[in-house]
Amino acid sequence: MSRTTALRGPVTVWTVLKWTLAIAIAIVAVFPIWWMFNVVFSQPGEPVSLNPRLWPTSLSAGIDKIRMIFTETGYLGAYFISITYALLTIVGVLLIASLAAFEFSLFKFPGRRIMFGIVMLALMVPTAVTIIPTYLLTSRLGWLNTMQGLVVPGLASAFGLFMLVQFMRAVPKEMIEAARLDGAGHFQIYWHVALPLCSNAMITLAILTFIQTWGNYMWPLIIGTRTEMYTVGQVVGMFNSPLSHHTVDTVMTANLLAAIPPLLFFLIFQRKIVEGIAMSGTKG
């Protein structure tokens, strides 16, 4: 046996199977994304010709397509809407969920258990059930086709509250009491003690919220009927629709552009995301 294998431990059938499976899953997951790159950065039609290619051949063709999409369609505006929507939702969800979690987990007040129970029930109700009443309410407020109409209904996150409550429960009571004796007010305890202590959970919640808002298709579709309120999801949906007169290349480019922010986001926060999902899974 060679030295390296000896160091890494014996190669068993199990190891081989494990790696084979992992690689197979990785190929299945990565191939569509790779295929998008391939189609975008090639001359139109080339990858799907009689003589198909699995690798990109033309950088300039890709850049041309991207430029075309940004200048000749409402894509740039949709990017702006989507990013604003995601950022506002993240800030709002973090603020509201953490304030509520602070009260629910560290203080006693009348009706605490019942209120928390009601919020947790909301976790079990599918969005499809609440979407019509929410729409009616939003419309009555005159918020159709507005940013607040897009953002506000998503701010109260039962899941976010649930997750942060799990974390804040772990904050020692004595630490809160020490802060109280140190003269910190209620909000100061929240801001200086409780919040920093669950910064990890907050980052996780921010990431999960981003993924959710960026991928949210139904609500923006319902609330934003005017083109200037379209999110990236909707614009891409238009490119993809059967009646669109765009070619495969253009559609692929639109899809690629929509996938880039979450992809970058994932690459940057990869570690945190994995940790966070593991945490929110096991801690509950």
Binding site: P172, E177, A179, R180, L181, V193, P196
Partner: peptide, 18 residues
């Protein structure tokens, strides 16, 4: 508590870890 002019040292120390 903060206005009583008392200071307390806890068994767990209760230091702010961050």
């Amino acid at each position: 508590p903060a206005l009583r002019g008392v200071a307390m040292v806890f068994q767990s120390y209760a230091l702010y870890p961050h």
